[in-house]
């Protein structure tokens, strides 16, 4: 189990980069699932059900994902602890160059935010009942769709979700281009492009994620029954 206590900084970085990349894939795949929200309760819930039907393969996938996530965090914490030792006396003045991105400065902040977010997110949606009062919209239980829909009716919850997605975007902005650098794909020629690519990519990810709470919030507060009904096309499939 020597990989649990990696002795080489570069290996640690590489593992963080690679686990990060897998997590990015997950974020994209998860987003694809989320966007079915716009297609209405039946599609959304159908998608959720389909996933559930894939057990025990899904269990295995979740376990791997869990490991990747834990590893990503564990190694990062390992580096942060080491980092505290490498500059015992701090500078009294330290200016950061303009070159350094905002997102890279916030990595150690966005990381924990994402962690907290994920824990809450799992409690809210994964380890919660998809039935009962919380799932009822307009007098009908809409399962997971209803749960999501209702939770975003709270402004506080929506804002927290949006805030977390911005954190995800910032984390990705640095993380994604950082992956290219750590794996040596970066070069003077393509460096600028890769940085831009990862910025646009992360903005897209954040924007796509936050459309859902905004959509749900506005639907809930300003939409009429019809709209909700339109959102729930075929009730028989529920």
């Amino acid at each position: 189990m020597s990989f649990l206590v990696p002795k080489s900084l570069i290996r640690i970085k590489q593992i963080i980069a690679v686990t990060g990349l897998f997590l990015i894939f997950f974020v994209v795949a998860h987003l694809a699932g989320n966007l079915t929200f716009f297609a209405g309760a039946d599609v959304f819930n159908g998608y959720a059900k389909k996933l559930q039907n894939m057990r025990p393969f899904l269990n295995f996938f979740e376990f791997v994902l869990f490991l990747i996530f834990i590893f990503h965090m564990y190694l990062t914490v390992f580096l942060i602890i080491r980092k505290r030792k490498v500059r015992p006396v701090k500078y009294s003045v330290q200016k950061s160059s303009a070159q350094r991105s905002f997102s890279s400065r916030l990595m150690t902040l966005t990381g924990p935010i994402i962690f907290i977010y994920i824990v809450l997110h799992l409690l809210d949606y994964t380890f919660s009942s998809h039935e009962g009062q919380a799932t009822v919209v307009n007098g009908k239980s809409l399962g997971l769709y209803g749960l999501v829909f209702n939770s975003f009716s709270s402004l506080r919850h929506s804002l927290w979700y949006i805030f977390s997605m911005v954190a995800v975007g910032l984390h990705l902005d640095h993380g994604f281009q950082s992956f290219f650098q750590t794996f040596g794909i970066y070069s003077s020629k393509y460096g600028g492009f890769l940085k831009k690519f990862s910025r646009i990519f992360s903005i897209c990810i954040t924007l796509s994620y936050v459309t859902i709470p905004i959509y749900a919030y506005f639907l809930n507060h300003y939409g009429n029954d019809q709209v909700i009904k339109v959102g729930v096309l075929d009730e028989s499939k529920l």
Partner: peptide, 27 residues
Amino acid sequence: GHCSNTYECEAACPKSISVSNIARANR
């Protein structure tokens, strides 16, 4: 410490050595 790809080094380098050299080493 480790490199976390902040590129502060490139900005500070008096010989403007590019961080693409770090990428090459990483490769």
